[in-house]
Design a protein around this nucleic acid. Structure first.
Lengths: 161, 161
DNA sequence: ACAGATGTTCTGCTCGACAGACGTTCTGTC
DNA sequence: GACAGAACGTCTGTCGAGCAGAACATCTGT
């Protein structure tokens, strides 16, 4: 069908697309999609962080962060709490609802990943992960971009259909 | 830095992002970016095709195809030629300029791919390609979507910064 | 010859992202 | 202590991309 690129770029795209699609389904109607998941994860797993810290970490514009958090807060998944040390900043804290929701999401994402990898034997899966890890480390070193997490949300931005 | 996903999704994203970034640079100021490249490739390599055929093949909206072709035609890379068999349709044909430009682009993309893969030994590169190929074949079979090429342009759509 | 289907283009709308202004609060200097 | 300047978050305005639907030209079948 293609011969567009030899194969690497093309197959990489196919696999990536399948993965994004699967994770989109898994994330479902979470406010903010992939980015909502990233923020929720940070809120649950890490120390409470300021909005701007999250912006920098995930490469999200600060005005975008505002309405992403509006939505997440509207869904009672996180709350904005004034930072005691600096009343300019709001700390993003997960609610109990948010924790539960994240637990579900993690489970669903795990299944999604397994689904995408289902075409490979366990050994091949391990090999693939190892190779991608090596490559990612190399790419990260060569490209000191803010955060590679950004991809995930770059992608969320696409997904037209 | 992350622990967002275990590793697969994350590293896949990093690698993919690096690839997209490299190819974006390689494609340069070609009108339409990735999609311009896809269209140009089809125009050069295949039989002349109608706009709607290209739309379906690449998952591009027909109204979008209109201005993509406007731009490519403005750059003298392709021309719209009335189809002899059906004067409603325009066949997209590459110009000589378009052929030369595509040849350059293919070369640059090859370099870009090599650059992304530079972190791996030749043997590892081959393994990775093989594994991705297997996975892509499986994903394609499971998901009879129009065309996997679509990814490439989905991505072009993202690339915020 | 005519009704309906198809290919292409145009128009209007929506949505997401970003730049810039604004109010609030902190920090450093005098 | 008072002030200038910076930082954080929010709001407003603007821009571009994409899509639905109308409009036009052309083809196909009866």
């Amino acid at each position: 069908m293609t011969a567009l690129d030899e194969d690497f770029g093309f197959t990489l795209g196919v696999v990536f697309r399948a993965y994004v699609k699967a994770t989109n389904v898994a994330v479902g109607d979470l406010p903010g999609g992939h980015r909502g998941y990233q923020i929720l994860t940070a809120a649950v797993r890490d120390q409470p962080e300021s909005q701007s810290a999250l912006c920098q970490q995930f490469g999200i514009d600060r005005t975008v962060m505002t309405y992403l958090l509006d939505d997440l807060e509207g869904a009672s998944l996180v709350i904005r709490r004034p930072a005691p040390a600096d009343r300019r900043t709001r700390l993003v804290v997960a609610t109990e609802t948010g924790r539960k929701r994240l637990a579900e999401l993690d489970l669903r994402l795990k299944h999604a990943e397994a689904h995408v990898l289902a075409g490979l034997s366990a050994q091949d899966q391990a090999s693939l992960k190892a190779l991608l890890g090596k490559l990612a480390a190399h790419a990260n070193a060569a490209d000191p971009v803010g955060s590679a997490c950004q991809v995930v949300q770059d992608i969320a931005a696409s997904t037209p259909q």
